[in-house]
């Protein structure tokens, strides 16, 4: 993350986001469907690329807030609980559009978290 991109975001917020990022990444690692493997094989880049796209679009401050909003979801998350959270997001309209793709906010938060964690 470049110096300038952290402007306006407190160290505390970043730290908190990084902590939940670690949790998010471990939750992702548990997800079914080979995603975890795919992400690992790619050195964590794909999720990060999406996360970066989200940060570029909404700004770092909002992106960090998005991650913090999901701390509770990520803490101790299992594949089931994460899928449940994603489904609940879709049903409640908690979605974001990235290049037109409709994504749940939980998914987006996890991707942003993976950027913040590195």
């Amino acid at each position: 993350m470049s110096r300038s991109s952290t402007r306006g975001v407190s160290r505390r917020a970043l730290l908190a986001a990084s902590v939940s990022a670690a949790a998010a990444m471990s939750a992702i690692a548990l997800m079914p469907g080979g995603v975890a493997e795919a992400l690992r094989a790619a050195g964590g880049r794909p999720g990060q690329a999406l996360g970066q796209a989200i940060i570029d679009r909404v700004g770092l401050r909002t992106a960090v807030a998005l991650v913090r909003e999901h701390e509770a979801v990520f803490a101790g998350a299992s594949a089931e609980s994460l899928s449940g959270a994603i489904a609940a997001d879709f049903r409640a309209g908690r979605t974001m559009r990235v290049d037109g793709w409709m994504l749940s906010r939980t998914e987006c938060a996890a991707c942003v978290a993976s950027v913040l964690a590195t």
């Binding site: 995603v35 795919a38 794909p46 999406l50 970066q52 990235v98 290049d99």
Partner: peptide, 17 residues
């Protein structure tokens, strides 16, 4: 598609597009 479904990958999304 192998890697796609859980959409953590912008590059993949772009490829799909």
């Amino acid at each position: 598609n192998e890697g796609f479904f859980q959409p953590f990958d912008t590059a993949l999304l772009e490829d799909i597009a």
